[in-house]
């Protein structure tokens, strides 16, 4: 990637490739939801890799395809195939505490994809002018894109979902949601680091039009 990427080269992927990428990333989210939770940090708070996979999908595939891929995961799970965490399946999860989080996932992936597309374009243009490779600062901005998407969609909708489904007051729902904040920061760092690896291996993925 030593050349600046002219905007004319930004082309949509072929339809079969889009279908394959959407399906494969939906499968990745399903696997990450089913993997046993990993204890992290001194408190041993178990985190699942589900939101990691959702954010990663947005960062790698961009807004449109990332949104569609996570939506595919959600629709397949609501239809009754056992792809949600804890092997729950079907419309019944919409009455449970995770409903708001699940419905927020496609929107969060879309927003993370849209913001990171802008950052990746600027970063690659700067890299082409200078060092040849996107520096740490650019990847920190990509991480920020994921954090913004978390706090615009996942946490507010998760809190609203818990208030509605469990009949909680705002303070309790906020407290229950805040348990996930440290894990969320860590997971978005992981997602950014892995996205950096993938985009170095497949630079064409960063050429998307949102």
């Amino acid at each position: 990637m030593s050349q600046a990427v002219p905007s004319a080269q930004r082309t949509s992927l072929a339809v079969p490739t889009q279908v394959a990428l959407a399906g494969v990333f939906a499968a990745l989210i399903a696997v990450c939801s089913m993997l046993p939770p990993i204890p992290v940090g001194g408190f041993g708070v178990p985190i699942t890799l589900q939101t990691f996979a959702v954010m990663l999908t947005g960062l790698i595939l961009g807004a449109r395809l990332g949104f569609l891929s996570v939506l595919l995961y959600l629709v397949v799970g609501l239809a009754g195939l056992p792809v949600f965490s804890g092997f729950n399946a079907g419309i019944g999860v919409l009455a449970g505490p995770s409903a708001g989080y699940l419905l927020a996932f496609p929107l969060a992936a879309g927003l993370a994809g849209a913001l990171s597309t802008v950052v990746l374009r600027r970063g690659q243009a700067a890299a082409a002018r200078g060092a040849g490779r996107m520096g740490f600062g650019w990847w920190a901005l990509v991480w920020l894109c994921a954090m913004v998407a978390s706090f615009v969609f996942i946490h507010p909708m998760g809190i609203a979902g818990m208030m509605l489904a469990l009949d909680l007051d705002l303070a309790t729902a906020l407290g229950a949601d805040m348990v996930f904040w440290p894990g969320d920061v860590v997971k978005n760092v992981l997602a950014t680091a892995v996205a950096a690896t993938v985009i170095r291996a497949f630079p064409a993925l960063a050429l998307r039009r949102f």
């Binding site: 079969p16 490739t17 394959a20 990428l21 399906g23 990663l56 790698i60 680091a193 291996a201």
Partner: peptide, 20 residues
């Protein structure tokens, strides 16, 4: 996690391209 999921994701995107 990064050491594990980085290579897994590169393989996964490769698999998606082959599937496409």
């Amino acid at each position: 996690p990064v050491r594990l999921m980085g290579p897994v994701l590169v393989a996964t995107v490769g698999h998606a391209r082959a599937t496409g």
